[in-house]
């Protein structure tokens, strides 16, 4: 579902991505670990066609993201570290707006509230203006957008960063729910604990290169941490 081959990106001669090959199948949760500047966000930006690749290719659902960017996005949902919504609209109005733009059809108010409920947002909160939402509440609206869109691929950039443990745990459960529906998930994160807890596979990126690819079930929390620190020191 999500695939890259020899993907490279340079910024003013500096290498941000170095020949990245990636395959994420439907239902798979791929957690990409790495320090700041490892190239995690750059990879997601290229998959979203926010940035052009310097060389190599990236596909989503078999479509080259740089050749058919608008078509590709029909299959993708994106949840950044801070889900950006319109502060002057309520949660349900934001969802209505983004879903209508994404799918070209209006969902009824009840369905919208149901989607927000599935994402863990209470009905009374859904009616309030987003300007007063916490980060976790915004993430839930982001997840509801992904659910409503029925996305086949989910790109997450540090989604649990700054969330309290309970909210992060709820978020992990939502991702599990999505993967059970067959969604391919790429999650860039610093959070080793949730990567191990949520991921089916784990990648470790260093200086633009994926230096380790692991099956999450083959490694424990402590070993993952040790491996990560070793690779970062190398």
């Amino acid at each position: 579902m999500i695939r890259t081959r020899k993907l490279c990106k340079y910024f003013d001669g500096d290498r941000a991505l170095d020949s990245v090959d990636l395959d994420i199948a439907p239902g798979e949760v791929y957690c990409l670990l790495g320090a700041n500047g490892a190239g995690k966000t750059t990879l997601i930006n290229i998959l979203l066609d926010f940035l052009p690749a310097s060389s190599g290719n990236a596909w989503i659902n078999g479509l080259d993201v740089s050749v058919e960017p608008l078509e590709t996005k029909k299959y993708v949902a994106y949840i950044p570290e801070q889900v950006m919504l319109y502060g002057t609209l309520s949660g349900v109005e934001n969802l209505d707006y983004f879903v209508t733009l994404a799918t070209g059809r209006r969902l009824g108010r009840e369905r919208l509230l149901e989607l927000l409920g599935e994402a863990g947002l209470a009905a009374d909160a859904a009616e309030r203006r987003v300007a007063k939402y916490s980060k976790g509440m915004r993430q839930k609206v982001g997840v509801a957008i992904a659910f409503a869109k029925d996305a086949k691929a989910l790109l997450l950039d540090e989604p649990t960063s700054g969330l309290d443990p309970q909210a992060a745990d709820e978020f992990s459960r939502l991702l599990k729910k999505a993967s059970d529906r067959g969604v391919a998930i790429l999650m860039a994160t610093h959070d080793l604990f949730h990567a191990k807890q949520t991921g089916t596979r784990i990648g470790i990126a260093r200086r633009g290169k994926i230096v380790a690819n692991l099956d999450a079930s083959d490694i424990g929390h402590a070993d993952l941490e040790a491996l990560y620190l070793d690779l970062m020191r190398a």
Binding site: F50, P69, T72, P80, M84, F98, A102
Partner: peptide
């Protein structure tokens, strides 16, 4: 500035 343009672009809004 608010980041909503990223959200809109990710949805494939021309």
């Amino acid at each position: 500035e608010q980041g909503t343009l990223r959200q809109l672009s990710s949805l494939g809004v021309p």
